[in-house]
Simulated assay, not measured.
Amino acid sequence: MSSLRLGEIGKISMCKRILKSQTNEFSGIPFYKISTFGGTPTVYIDEKVYLEYKEKYSYPKKGDILISAAGTIGKTVIFDGEDSYFQDSNIVWIENDESKVTNQFLYYFLQTNPFITTNGSTIKRLYNDNLRDTKIPNVPSIQQQNQITDILGTLDKKIQTNNQINQELEAMAKTLYDYWFVQFDFPDQNGKPYKSSGGKMIYHPELKREIPEGWGVEKLENIANITMGQSPKGTSYNEVGEGMLFFQGSTDFGWRFPVARQYTTEPSRIAEEDDILLSVRAPVGTLNIADTRCCIGRGLAAINSKGGANSYIFNVMQDFKKLFDMMNSVGTTFGSITKDDLYSLQLVYPPNELLMKFDQSVKPFDREIKNRSRQNQELTQLRDWLLPMLMNGQVKVE
């Protein structure tokens, strides 16, 4: 194995500069700034400009590895070839000679955080010289590169498949919730959709809307157990696994379950497994679910249904999140929600029999989501453990 500088495997390229006046927020070709790189674009450029610049100037080919040179240094995205444009100098790529280093191998090498200075800090901006001088210390043969990336790619594909299945399962549960509890087309006594089949609706003056006959309105405190978080002493925090898992706020949140980062040897307020975790400080209303018993800090509250209908409460809290977001968008920012405000939130409350039926319908989805999420945690740990050893030659693929 020999080492190669990135400058030896190809030239560093970037898109032609786009001026702010050339962008709009409505339509056209997606334009990714450093703030939206790897996410959802917020601005677009005219298709005519895109086609002209793509023809005249540097433009990535499908499979090239796009690299962030500002913001989060070294963030990578594999270019999918879809029509899009990228912010010059902040987002660059290497036109690498794949007879030396394949795109996939380069992608995984960049996951090892090579842009770390000798004193252990990450540089604040990635200049072209930084990129050119970055060394891949052990470059194996193309055959070995393919073997290494096949292993890592298989793990990533399984993680991605699990994520897609989880998102589909959550969407199915949400669709059923909306159908039953927003459109009020839950199955009536004859198994027909209630409202669409002429089920009786009663106007509720407090909610200022109609709800099905026999349904009530409850405060959250009456139908749920609520635990407001309290942060333990700072001296009890650690990241080596001593004591109980500790989540301070929504910064620890993942897609549905929080990500283990900190522990405390002096836990104060406790959330039980499957409790709904609600962010009570900006951003108010963000949700996760505890996948194990844990300690929660003052940025969170833990909620569980007194009647066992956690799935219903979870969806109701998502609806409240929409309300908070809407209020934020009109200029009334929620810095936090107090205990009294949380306890007094009002919601439509169906008969218990219907709640249990809904919970039984979606419980298999929830269980599968949890299992696949736990599997992804294990796969991610395995990939992250293998990655540096495969890259530096400590582990060889026979």
Rank of each mutant, 00 (worst) to 15 (best):
N138W: 06
Q145I: 08
A282V: 02
E25S: 14
S361N: 10
G307C: 11
Q346R: 13
A302T: 05
E168S: 15
F109L: 06
P267T: 00
T72M: 06
F86R: 09
Q262W: 12
D83Y: 06
D188F: 10
Y32G: 12
F115W: 07
P212I: 00
E55H: 12
P258G: 01
G214K: 05
A290S: 05
E82M: 10
Q144V: 15
L347K: 03
L287N: 04
I73E: 11
N315H: 15
P137S: 01
Q164L: 13
I148P: 13
S305Y: 00
S373H: 10
P350S: 00
N288C: 09
G191T: 03
Q189N: 11
I94A: 02
D319W: 13
I91W: 11
D80K: 08
K33V: 10
L207F: 12
S336L: 02
T112D: 09
L382A: 06
Y343G: 03
Y194N: 01
L245K: 13
P60D: 14
E221Q: 13
E221H: 09
T235G: 11
A171N: 12
E239T: 15
E353G: 15
E8V: 08
A290N: 05
N103P: 05
S311A: 14
L386V: 00
M201S: 04
Y44M: 02
T118D: 03
D80M: 02
Q22I: 00
L152Y: 02
F358M: 05
R372G: 01
V316W: 00
D341K: 14
S231N: 03
K157N: 14
E47M: 01
V280R: 07
N352G: 14
Q147R: 15
Q248D: 08
F31C: 06
D384A: 08
F247A: 02
W215R: 05
Q377Y: 11
S311P: 11
P187N: 07
C295E: 06
S231W: 07
G39P: 03
K61L: 09
L390H: 08
T154D: 09
L300D: 07
M172W: 11
G254W: 08
P283C: 00
K322G: 04
K396S: 14
D274I: 13
N376C: 04
I65A: 01
E25Q: 10
E273I: 13
E82S: 14
S89V: 15
L169H: 02
H204L: 07
Y57S: 13
I226G: 01
T36H: 00
